[in-house]
């Protein structure tokens, strides 16, 4: 077996192979039309809608920041709905009990399945940014792109962690569409992508800090509108720690959900 010191290369290859295969199975590269409509065009129309709205209401003030923030919000399709399907699709196809009975580490397995959704979220967000720049004619400095890539990767990682906690719920509840839509709407509301957090009641803006994307949106606006990256390290450290906490909770949640599913006999419930 090939290995680098204590690192088992085959395990790493298996990790990424599993990630790619599960993603292909979930989002149907076999049918690109579905992928384009659901994962690209749908989020893009959402971005255009909100960008037009804020452009009308604020008279174009800070439009660059709003376009970039809404582009970041497009990752919700991957980080919430995509992550939900990490568990749900197996149940739908009747393979969940087999996956759960297999000897592999479930935490590693589900984390591997999360990777393509993080990558896809970043891709969709950047595509949204390109469309936003072309449609609204806003200019975003090239110097801002690299910091944006870092901010968005960390923010989307964090959002996927929360999405995986939600995915764990699908072990015992059939109401996943209800829960996933509530989470997606909550992220839209609490991120402040279309308004300043100062317009919210203080209890709500404090609550928003426990959610992913809020810091990402704040930093995106600061960098795109003012070129101000002074808060970068602090906010991104907080966001990364938040993401790690979410993933840690999701692993515990999956184990607990698995236990509940076995006790209640709900693992195959659809």
């Amino acid at each position: 077996m090939e290995s680098w010191g204590c690192i088992n290369v085959e395990s790493i290859k298996r990790f990424f192979r599993h990630a790619v295969l599960s993603y292909k199975a979930l989002f149907g590269w076999l049918d690109p039309k579905s992928y384009i409509l659901v994962m690209l065009l749908n989020p893009l129309t959402q971005m255009i809608f909100f960008a037009m709205l804020v452009n009308f209401v604020y008279g174009g003030k800070g439009l660059e920041g709003y376009v970039a923030s809404n582009a970041l919000l497009l990752c919700v399709m991957s980080s919430v709905f995509g992550m939900m399907t990490v568990v749900m699709s197996d149940r739908g196809m009747g393979t969940l009990p087999i996956v759960m009975a297999s000897p592999v580490n479930k935490g590693v397995l589900f984390f591997a399945r999360s990777i393509p959704h993080i990558v896809n979220g970043v891709f969709t967000a950047f595509l949204g940014l390109v469309f936003g720049v072309l449609i609204f004619g806003v200019s975003i400095s090239l110097d801002a792109l690299l910091p944006l890539l870092g901010i968005w990767m960390v923010s989307i990682f964090s959002a996927c962690g929360l999405g995986l906690i939600l995915g764990a719920c699908s072990f015992w509840t059939p109401s996943m569409h209800l829960l996933s839509n509530i989470l997606a709407s909550a992220l839209l509301l609490l991120s402040g992508a279309n308004y300043s957090l100062s317009v919210m009641p203080s209890w709500l803006s404090d609550f928003a800090k426990f959610f992913p994307l809020t810091r990402g949106v704040e930093l995106t606006k600061a960098i795109v509108n003012e070129g101000d990256a002074t808060q970068f390290v602090r906010l991104m450290s907080e966001e990364f720690i938040l993401g790690c906490i979410y993933f840690a909770i999701s692993i515990v949640a999956i184990r607990y959900a698995e236990y509940l599913a076995r006790v209640k006999g709900t693992m195959e419930m659809s």
Binding site: V38, T45, L53
Partner: peptide
């Protein structure tokens, strides 16, 4: 698939919020 796609375009084109 179409169901998931037609929500925001109608919000946008029919001027619900602007």
């Amino acid at each position: 698939v179409l169901m998931n796609f037609i929500e925001y375009p109608i919000f946008l084109i029919c001027g619900f919020l602007f």
